[in-house]
Structure formats: C-alpha cells, structure tokens
Amino acid sequence: MIEVHNLTKRYGTIPAVTDLSFTLPEGEVLGLLGPNGAGKTTTMRMLTTFLAPSSGTARVCGFDVRTEAHEVRKILGYLPETPPLYPELRVEEYVRFVARIKGVAARDVTERVDEVLEKCALADVRKRLCGQLSKGYRQRIGLAGALVHRPKVVILDEPTSGLDPAQIIHVRELISSLRQQHTVVLSTHILPEVAQTCTRALIISRGRGVVEGSLEALTADQTLEERFLHTVAGENVSGAGEQPSEDAR
C-alpha cells in the first residue's frame, strides 16, 4: 500500500529525513515513533504530497508522490498536527466543503457528511462554528475531514496531542476502528498509544528510520519503551537541542 524507498528531505543543507525506507501492507496501522524534531511530520508531509522529497521515492497505492501527486491526493486522507479548520464555518459546512474539494460526487455529499459526522461523534455540534469549539472537537472535525471521501490511506499527525484523557480514548477507539477500511499511518511520541492502536511501528531518530517491524516482533524480547530508549537515547545525549524543530517551519 505504501512503499518508501531511500526517502530524503533537506531544508537547504539541513537534513530533516535521510534515506528512510519502509513498506506498509494494506489494512495495517503504522505508528511513527520518535522524539520531537525526529522527522515524523516531514515524512508525513512527503507522503501526503505537501512537500516534495529531495531524493528517493515514495509510492502510495502504486502512485508516486512526486509524479502522480494528483492520484495520491484522491486516495489519501490527511490530518495535520493542527486541524486545518476555517473558524468562520459551521462544522457541517466545513465537512461539506472538504468533501467537495476531495471530489466526492455531488449526489453523495450529504450522505457522506452525515455518515462521517456520526462516526466522529460530531452530530450534536454540526451547527456550531468550528472556531468556537474545544481542541477535542477540532481534532475530530479534522478527522472527519480526513475521512469524508473514504480514502484508502489515512495519515494522522499526532492525532491525540493536546486532548484530555477521555478524548484520547475516544480518538484511539476511532483510529482502531479505521483499520477495517483504511490503511493508517500515525505519528506520536506517546509509546502506549502505539501499543494500543498500531499493528506496526517505525522508530525514527534524527531523520533516520532506526527500527521497523510488526508490533509483536518489536516487543518480543523487550518492551517498546526499552527498545525506544535504547535506539533513541544514545543519540539524544550527544545531539539534544541541535535538531532543527520541524514544528517551527
């Protein structure tokens, strides 16, 4: 479903992602793990065609993100770290707008919008303005936008950041339920989240993929925490603070 080969992104001369390779079969949920600034967001932005790779290739459902970006965009749902909401639109209007620009056929729009609002538990706030709702709601509105066109691949950048515990549980349940219909890539720095929602994990450190595999394989001989700290810690001690923050861009 997703094949990434030697993917590299440099901002000027500063490398953000270097020689990243992995594949993700259909129906799996991949957790991108890594400390802040490791290159998780940059990787996702390349997969979603928002950023062009400096070198290397990435294919989503067989379509190259650089040369067949338009095809990739049709089959992809993306929730950036900050949900891309228009504060002046009502929830319903927003999801309807997203459905339309994602190319949902005119006669299906209403049905799809209702369906996805129901799924993301937004039915009771559908008439409220996006800008007036709390972080938890905004995250779910963004998720509704990412799912409304029934994408084959869903990419979620830190979907649970800034939510309260109850909201986190709800969003995680929602992500787990996506597995039946979608292939999911999500990024996080919360380790238990990977254990709960993902089937595979990829640990990224300083722009390089360090460990990749199914969750069972990764947690066979040591816990995910141990493995994470083991692979990330050594480099972090020497390089802490040097890493350019991708969030600042």
């Binding site: 932005r45 979603t48 065609t49 928002f50 338009h70 965009r73 049709k74 992809l76 993306y78 950036p80 900050t82 949900p83 891309p84 909401l85 228009y86 504060p87 997203v98 620009i101 994602k102 190319g103 936008g145």
Partner: peptide, 14 residues
C-alpha cells in the same frame, strides 16, 4: 497561517 493551506494542497485540486 491557519494551516488550511495544507488541506488545499493535499486535495485533488490544482
């Protein structure tokens, strides 16, 4: 500024 540009660019519109 508000991040919606990412939504537009990653949508199947030119």
């Amino acid at each position: 500024q508000q991040g919606t540009f990412e939504l537009l660019v990653t949508s199947p519109i030119t």
